[in-house]
Amino acid sequence: MSHLEDKISAPKPVQGSPEASGQLDDLLALMARLRADCPWDRKQSNHSLIPYAIEEAYELGEAVQSDDDEDIKSELGDVLLQVVFHCQMYAEQGRFDMSDVIRTLQEKLTRRHPHVFEAETLKDDAAVKVRWDEIKAEEQSAREARGKPKRRLDSLKAGSALMQAQEVQKQASKLGFDWEGVAGAFDKLDEEIAELKNELIDKTKENAKYNISTSNIKEIEKELGDCMFALVNVARKINLDAEAATLTCVHKFKSRFGYIEEQLAIAGKRLEDSDITEMDALWEAAKQHERLL
């Protein structure tokens, strides 16, 4: 049994100026100190850290692609920070600590590799994958026996919001919950955009247009999410990957904005010295430059 039966206590904060020892216990004590003495760290919650965990995972992926050891070490450390940060806060809540997380991982890895730790023999990586999925299914059955029923969309893998949205829609479509063609997806997108616009209008002012009131910012967020979800549905219906399409747009924007910065530098100017009119003209020039490449 886990020591969860005992009272969980958070690690004690390190005293003085800590040294980089490379030891996990010292890292946990450092995190405890940050939670105690840093205003930003102190105000965080497990939910507020979610975007940072996602961001760090993506940055690790980019570092691995770059194959730069210093970048990789730094980004692995940032991912580890998210684990340590979450464990510190859950320990403060008396729920579990780092040793419970490590123990759970060790048990899972041993359980899912019977071909390594038991007598099973699997001939190749494909067979290992099949057995892995079988063991995961057995684990799910055990969870259901503990009163945690599996719903059809609960097993989808986590990913970016766009990736999850497209996969949820794909699985729902397999179960018959979908429009026959793209027209229905476009109609839904138009509907959601109209609802977003309606929320953006400050109804307390006559002839107001897109005057955002902070009193309904949560509703605006919900409607914006509905618009994004509906647009992903359009991508799915025309067999495009929403994540890939968005990344293409991000890279395009970065490239064009970089062109603006370069052209301003040639003219002896900085971005801060320019205005929207000049930058917009250079943006159009960047688009023309792309066509020549």
Rank of each mutant, 00 (worst) to 15 (best):
A158L: 15
G159N: 10
M163L: 07
M163W: 14
Q164S: 06
A165L: 15
Q166A: 13
Q166T: 14
Q171C: 06
A172I: 00
A172H: 08
S173A: 15
G176L: 12
F177R: 10
F177A: 09
D178K: 12
W179A: 03
E180Q: 12
G181A: 00
G181L: 01
A183F: 03
G184D: 12
D187S: 11
K188N: 11
L189A: 02
A194P: 00
E195W: 12
E195P: 03
L196D: 05
L200M: 15
D202C: 02
K203P: 02
T204M: 08
A208F: 03
I212S: 02
S213F: 08
S213E: 04
T214W: 07
T214V: 12
I217C: 13
E219P: 00
I220G: 01
I220A: 04
M228A: 05
F229R: 03
L231V: 04
V232E: 13
N233H: 13
V234Q: 10
A235G: 03
R236M: 10
N239A: 08
A242C: 13
A242I: 09
A244H: 06
L247R: 11
L247E: 04
V250Q: 07
H251F: 07
H251V: 07
F253E: 02
K254I: 10
S255C: 04
F257I: 03
G258E: 01
Y259T: 02
Y259H: 13
Q263N: 15
I266S: 10
I266N: 09
A267D: 14
K269I: 04
R270V: 00
S274M: 03
S274V: 04
D275G: 03
T277P: 04
T277G: 12
M279T: 15
A281G: 04
L282M: 09
